[in-house]
């Protein structure tokens, strides 16, 4: 062929990544009674998978497709549409920084630059020690606290560049301070 073509017809077992454990399947199945179709449980299922594995592997997509009686491509379609889902492994903690106008006006860009420099990674990358991943999001709907960012589940408000060291070194910087529902687990990295 005259130019390079990506071969999508084959995939290696390494590329497939980890699959779903029995516990995860059970958690997903608990959502079935809520909806008249199994497919409707897909987005909750993807949250559960991402909480468990840290990301949504190809194998996980195949497994969940089987569970929900879909074609794996339909799962891939949905995963790729929503910006919160990662298709490659993440670090233990993911920083989701708001980049929308309110946050930008209040210094969000400086926070972003400082974070990128501190972590040494670009968007959608993970630090070498597997600790941090970084992404930006269009708006976290916390504009009165601009600039703001989520670390896993916890929202950090009015973040200033000089606060970053304190925030990043706090061991509880990703923990919710409230009773949580057991429908979704706190995120953890994939067990390898």
């Amino acid at each position: 062929m005259a130019w390079r073509t990506i071969d999508r017809t084959k995939v290696s077992p390494e590329e497939m990544g980890p699959g779903l454990s029995a516990a995860v399947r059970e958690k997903i199945q608990a959502f079935f009674p809520r909806y008249p179709t199994k497919q409707a449980a897909l987005i909750p299922a993807l949250h559960i998978i991402q909480d468990a594995l840290g990301y949504i592997s190809l194998q996980a997509m195949e497994d969940v497709a089987e569970l929900l009686e879909l074609h794996p491509s339909q799962v891939m379609d949905v995963v790729s549409f929503y910006s919160m889902f990662w298709t490659h492994p993440r670090g233990k903690k993911t920083i989701m920084l708001c980049r929308s106008l309110s946050c930008e006006l209040m210094g969000g860009k400086n926070v972003r630059d400082a974070l990128v420099e501190k972590l040494g990674i670009k968007e959608h990358e993970t630090t070498d020690d597997g600790e941090w991943s970084f992404m930006t999001e269009e708006c976290l709907a916390a504009c009165e606290h601009a600039p703001c960012m989520l670390i896993n589940e916890k929202l950090h408000k009015c973040v200033r560049v000089e606060d970053l060291n304190r925030i990043l070194s706090d061991p509880d910087n990703d923990k919710l301070e409230m009773p949580r529902s057991d429908l979704f687990d706190a995120p953890r990295t994939a067990q390898t």
């Binding site: 999508r8 017809t9 084959k10 590329e15 997509m61 794996p72 491509s73 379609d77």
Partner: peptide, 18 residues
Amino acid sequence: RVINRGSRGEIDVFPGRP
């Protein structure tokens, strides 16, 4: 399927499911 969103949209197959 269509994958991705907006102008990044592409047609694709699931890898290994030609």
